[in-house]
Simulated scan of single mutants.
Amino acid sequence: MIDFLNYSNQPRYGLITLLILLIVGEMIWSYRNNKHVYELRDTLTNLVIFAGFQLSKLAFFGIELSIGAFFTRHELFHLEKNTWVFVSCFILVDFVYYWYHRLSHKIKFLWAFHLIHHSSLYMNLTVSYRLNWLSTVLTPFIYAPLLLLGFPIEFILLSLALNLVYQFFLHTEAIGKLGFIEYIFNTPSAHRVHHGSNERYIDKNFGGFLIIWDLLFNSYERETIKATYGTTTGFIGYNPLKLNFKGFIDLFKSKMTYKG
Rank of each mutant, 00 (worst) to 15 (best):
I2K: 12
Y7V: 14
N9V: 01
G14K: 01
L15V: 14
L15A: 06
Y31K: 10
R32S: 04
R32E: 09
N33H: 13
N34A: 12
V37L: 06
E39L: 13
L40C: 11
T43R: 05
T45P: 07
F50Y: 15
L58G: 15
I63R: 00
F77N: 12
F77R: 05
H78P: 02
L79F: 13
K81R: 14
K81V: 15
V87D: 05
C89M: 00
L92K: 00
L92W: 00
L92P: 02
F95M: 06
Y100C: 05
Y100D: 13
K106G: 03
K106L: 10
K108G: 08
F109M: 04
F109N: 01
L110K: 01
F113H: 08
H114S: 05
I116P: 04
H117T: 05
H117F: 13
H118A: 07
S120G: 07
L121W: 01
L121Y: 06
N124Y: 11
L125E: 07
V127K: 03
Y129I: 06
Y129H: 14
W133E: 02
W133R: 01
L134N: 11
V137A: 14
T139V: 15
I142L: 04
I142W: 03
Y143R: 03
L146A: 08
L147S: 14
L148F: 08
L149P: 06
S159I: 04
L160F: 00
L160E: 03
N163F: 05
V165E: 06
Q167Y: 01
F169M: 05
T172L: 02
E173H: 09
E173I: 01
E173C: 06
G176T: 08
F180K: 11
F180Q: 02
Y183A: 03
N186C: 10
H191A: 02
R192A: 08
V193I: 02
N198L: 13
R200M: 09
D203I: 07
K204E: 12
K204D: 09
F217P: 12
N218V: 02
R222H: 08
Y229T: 13
T232L: 14
T233G: 00
I236E: 09
G237L: 01
P240H: 02
L241R: 02
K242D: 03
I249A: 12
I249F: 07
D250R: 10
F252D: 02
F252G: 07
K253S: 11
M256P: 00
T257I: 15
